[in-house]
Amino acid sequence: MLKTINLKKVYPNGEEALKGINLEIPNGQVVALIGPSGAGKSTFIRTINRLVEPTSGKVYFANEKNDITSLNKSKLRKIRRQIGMIFQEFALVERLSVMENVLSGRLGYVGFWNSFFRKFPQKDIEEAFRLLQRIGLEHMLDKRADELSGGQRQRVGIARALIQNPMLLLVDEPTASLDPKNSRQIMRLICELCKERDLAAIINIHDVYLAQNFAERIIGLKAGKIVYDGKPSGLSETILTKIYGEEDWSKTVAN
């Protein structure tokens, strides 16, 4: 479903963030991407929908002919509609209401003036209601996004990504600004929703424990290179040391 070939990114300051990533993700697979800060996790998922332009390499999406890196602007927008994204600090537009934030996920499908006057098709509105109900925030619909708590905001962020009706979710550190309880709830919600919709997801995550518990496949990234790719159960102390460096990992691997 998603295939990257020798994907590289060099920033203008000369920093090599990605040193050739080859990866293939089948339909409906939830992948956790782990690695230390600065390993290139965020850069990697942003090169997939070209929020960050890759320097070289290819990204095939949906079929072997559809290379995202070679698309023009309007085709790129069409692809972006099919890729949902969830962000680290929620990235809700704080001064818009919950409903507007959720509906903004449909922007790629409606014209400018309709979106300007907030006239979305009834079908989209119904879907928004359904999603808000699913995440348990139906009663918050008219609240401004900055009135919500962290966990609630991330739920709205999830709804915004899902209303795009995507084939792939890119998730950037969804739990970095949440407490442990909310972190688990959010991870569980994302994984459940992926299963319900047979959705593939790439989840960047710091927390090895959460990654092991929720993902089907783990990819370890270090300094822009893949150093591990396999089952969560295969994460051993030596592999964690390889990804993160020397530390006592015995407690983490224990489960």
Binding site: R118, Q122, I125, E126, L141, D142
Partner: peptide
């Protein structure tokens, strides 16, 4: 309120 209940469905408007 911005949620408007029609006979058989409900819709939403900003205001």
């Amino acid at each position: 309120m911005p949620i408007i209940k029609q006979k058989d469905y409900k819709t939403w408007k900003k205001f």
